[in-house]
Design a protein around this nucleic acid. Structure first.
Lengths: 333, 333
DNA sequence: AGCTAACATGTAATCGATTACAAAGCGCAG
DNA sequence: CTGCGCTTTGTAATCGATTACATGTTAGCT
């Protein structure tokens, strides 16, 4: 390579990574040689020397879940132009044991980490107190208690409150809620928002109207069965995810009930299928692409700086209610 | 590190990567030092020396599409335990221009490539004839004409035929088809299967009953509008993707038509929502996880071998029809 | 002319692991 | 006791780019 262009390897390197410092003529000679040989820089070598990897890891709780794919797309959208590769890890996979995951991070594999799962491998956490050079970490969607890390989230409580107020606005006075998985931060934030709004509106809070769930289609269907079994049923139900809302409506429909005639349903997320479900889903829209993009932007910024200095940032993106067909007026009675 | 264990760096390296060649005592000493210092190997350096990267790239046509996420999950499931990182690239992103993508591959970033998109960046293809060390490549789902590359696919034509036969079995004699995007290999394979089955069953092939589409919800809805506009309508429609089937049914439902009473619909893919859609979707089930897993297995095998030697392999995974509610008996008349 | 500053380029060290090769230690057979 | 072979370990070269430092060149100024 260097020989072909008639210069030293140092000059080649400079022509490629700092074109401004070499003379016009040399630059051309080098570029020409590059073109002729089809030379491709060896990133491994560059990264070794620069002490970085040019990759960021994204920990995804469940790759099969369509909710996350758009966020990933947002991340990729920002990371790729910035010269970072996106490495994905499915944390729900069995291999994802302590050690394994840890390996993924220790700066040797990636320069930073975005967690969509609200957790970190234990091994990583233990490193924390050692103030031992952890790579920059940003949480998106979910997060960990403690305010230690930067995060990009939405106002879950506000979203939940919007859902409840919407139903109240339609005349509903008995409102139920299908929860996400126990122990999840989103679950509790949305639950909190729901309860707060219910209290605010002087509506009844009935324990039986709070159904267990885990964000999945299946759990929505199970909630529907619980709803069916009730003596006194809420006339509207706010589900903490669209998937559960779909499962809920689907199960009811199999039992001959219809939405919104028999019960109004509001979801959360506004996944793609929401507007095409039958009935189309009233839901709380999250800017999924933006969440990913913001998280990536934040992370890359941190990687650029001396990571240590930066204090944790919290970015809250707006949500909005999208009224569709699954919610309607309460039966007057 | 080496100092702490009282041995040379060479011995440390051996203890870690080839434990069998060092003596019991030394090995223990090294492992002990590793434990005490929390030493993590620098993969960049190792990869530089070994002339590999330990990563595979997956080119995804559209990360936002839920169909692909499960395939990705399958890939990750196999790749991670084998010590490979999974790098994703969204080929539909604007940045994904020729050069950019190329950079991703040239062995410096990844040891191999899985393409879910049925294409390769042009720059890569040009390399082909040069027999210039291309990394191993495996196609999954979609593929490129020419049999040059290994691929893991399903029998699309057979799937389409199953769908048509199923509808025929329910008494339908006028059957339509919503196509995928033009120029796509899946589109043509499914179309071919559809036509073959129609001919086989002595059913009419009416050009107006073949609707354009692109696998998306939106295009399914548009096909529904086209169906509505027809003078003579098919009594059953086979959609080349579940998303289109959902869009189709959704649009009809808004216009007051219902499925399967007014028209039977069969989809393709069996995405998660299919069984919870209303009506639940009769569809051709693809083993999405397995497709990803097989592709990864195949690729990793190739990476292990001297890549050159291996002839292209074609693996065809079975599909099956899942009969649900969206298809029913044709109106007798 | 003489001196300095600015620029362009080459030389060689460096990143951190791997590994070819050499050497040392040891056992065993002749 | 010598020599061959085996195991274990150390020395130093290597992977391919980057970059501190040194050197050489030219322009500009007094």
């Amino acid at each position: 390579m260097a020989r072909l262009a008639g210069v030293s390897t140092a000059t080649v390197s400079r022509a490629i990574s700092t074109p401004s410092v070499v003379s016009e003529a040399t630059r051309e000679a080098v570029f020409d040689a590059v073109r002729r040989t089809g030379y491709q820089i060896n990133l491994t070598a560059r990264n070794l020397r620069r002490r970085r990897t040019g990759a960021i890891v994204v920990m995804v709780p469940d790759l099969g879940n369509p909710f996350f794919s758009r966020i990933l797309a947002g991340i990729e959208h920002v990371a790729a132009p910035a010269g970072f590769s996106v490495l994905i890890v499915d944390t729900k996979q069995p291999h994802a044991e302590e050690g394994q995951l840890f390996t993924y991070l220790h700066n040797t594999r990636a320069d930073g980490l975005i967690s969509l799962d609200g957790s970190l491998p234990r091994a990583l956490l233990e490193r924390l107190d050692g103030s031992n050079g952890l790579p920059p970490i940003v949480f998106a969607c979910e997060w960990m208690a403690g305010g230690l890390f930067s995060k990009v989230v939405i106002d879950n409580a506000a979203g939940a409150a919007m859902a409840v107020r919407h139903l109240h606005g339609h005349g509903h006075r008995r409102i139920g809620h299908v929860l996400g998985p126990q122990g999840n931060v989103l679950t509790s934030a949305r639950l909190k928002g729901t309860r707060a709004a219910l209290e605010d509106l002087d509506l009844r809070i009935v324990p039986e109207w709070f159904f267990d769930g885990d964000f999945s289609l299946q759990s929505g269907a199970e909630a529907a069965r619980a709803w069916l079994a009730l003596q006194e049923r809420p006339t509207a139900v706010f589900c903490a995810s669209d998937q559960m809302a779909c499962g809920f409506i689907s199960e009811l429909s199999m039992e001959g009930y219809s939405v919104p005639q028999d019960v109004s349903v509001v979801g959360f997320d506004d996944i793609d299928i929401a507007r095409r479900f039958i009935p189309s889903l009233t839901t709380i829209h999250q800017p999924r692409n933006d969440i990913g993009a913001e998280a990536a932007k934040l992370l890359i910024e941190r990687i650029g700086n001396g990571k240590a200095a930066a204090p944790a940032v919290e970015e809250v993106l707006p949500v909005e209610l999208v009224a569709r067909e699954s919610s309607g007026p309460a039966e007057p009675f």
